[in-house]
Nucleic acid binder design. Structure first.
Lengths: 134, 134
DNA sequence: TTACCTGCAAAGGGTTTGCACTTTG
DNA sequence: CAAAGTGCAAACCCTTTGCAGGTAA
C-alpha cells in the first residue's frame, strides 16, 4: 500500500498509524505526537505532520476539521460517516445515512465528478447542552 | 439584527457585508479586504476579520473551508447548499438536495440536537480535470 | 549503496490581540 | 459622554521546510 510509490514503511510511520488505529477518538496532530512520543521519545512533530499527509494520501487516514478548529485525524474505516460537533461541550457524534450517500452519488454522476473525499460536518448544541428558547 | 446585542452598524461592517452580498464567489478574508479597501482605503484587515466573525455570529455570513485551504465566506442565502471543490483546477460547484436536508433533519431530531450549521464538502476531480484510470 | 526519511530549529501564513485613538448611539 | 469599534503592529498557533545526519531496501 505504501510501497507503491517507493515509500518506505519506517517505524515512525507504522507508529503513527498504530496510534490512530488504536484510538476511538479523533486526534489532532499534537495528540498523535504525544501518544507516539510515549513509545518513541525521539519522534518529532515534523515527522508526525509529514506522516499524516502521507497516510492521508495513501487513503489510510482521513482528515477533518471538527468545530472550527485545527485539523483532526482518524484511521479510515470501511463505512463512510459524518460528524456533529457540539459548540458548547465539544462532544462529537458520528452518524451515517444511506440517503446522503445516494444524494452525493447522484450529484457526482450527473456532474461527471470523480469523488475523492466527503466531509459532512454539523455543528450546534447536543441534547445536554441545548438551551431551550430563552 | 446586529443591534440586538448592542452592536453598532458601522460603515466598515456595512461595507464588508455589501462586498459579500455583491459577490457571487466565495471570498477569503484577503479578498474581502481587497474589495473593501477599494472603497474605503483606511479599512484594516483586522476589522475585516472581526467583522466576518460578527456577521457569522449574526447569521448573515457563512464560513466554509473549501479545499483544504484557509477560510472562505459567503453571504447567507435562503436555501442551504453544499460544495464540491476540484482538487486540480479549484473550481467550486454548488449543489443542493432535499435528501441531504431530510437525513440531517432526522438525525437531529433523533439526537435532540439544536442545529446551528451544516457544511457538506466534496472534493475530487471535475468533469474537465478527471483522469480516466491511467 | 543510495534514495528516502528523520530531527531540529527556523520560517511561514492565516488569524487574533493589545493599545491608544475614533466613532456611534 | 460612555461604550463600542477601528487601525496598527506585534503576537499567536498550527503547519511546513531547509538542512545535515540517519536508515530502509
Amino acid at each position: 500500500m505504501l510501497h507503491s510509490g517507493g515509500k518506505r514503511l519506517t517505524k515512525q510511520r507504522q507508529l503513527a498509524l498504530d496510534v490512530l488505529q488504536e484510538s476511538a477518538e479523533h486526534l489532532d496532530a499534537e495528540a498523535v505526537y504525544a501518544r507516539a512520543k510515549a513509545r518513541d521519545p525521539k519522534i518529532s512533530i515534523a515527522t508526525i505532520y509529514r506522516t499524516l499527509a502521507l497516510l492521508k494520501e495513501a487513503g489510510l487516514v482521513e482528515e477533518n476539521r471538527l468545530g472550527e478548529e485545527h485539523a483532526h485525524f482518524e484511521a479510515t474505516r470501511s463505512t463512510p460517516h459524518y460528524h456533529f460537533t457540539c459548540l458548547r461541550c465539544g462532544r462529537v457524534i458520528e452518524f451515517d445515512t444511506p440517503q446522503v450517500q445516494e444524494a452525493i452519488q447522484s450529484f457526482c454522476t450527473r456532474e461527471k465528478i470523480q469523488l475523492v473525499s466527503v466531509q459532512l460536518l454539523l455543528s450546534g448544541y447536543c441534547a445536554l447542552c441545548r438551551r431551550e428558547e430563552e
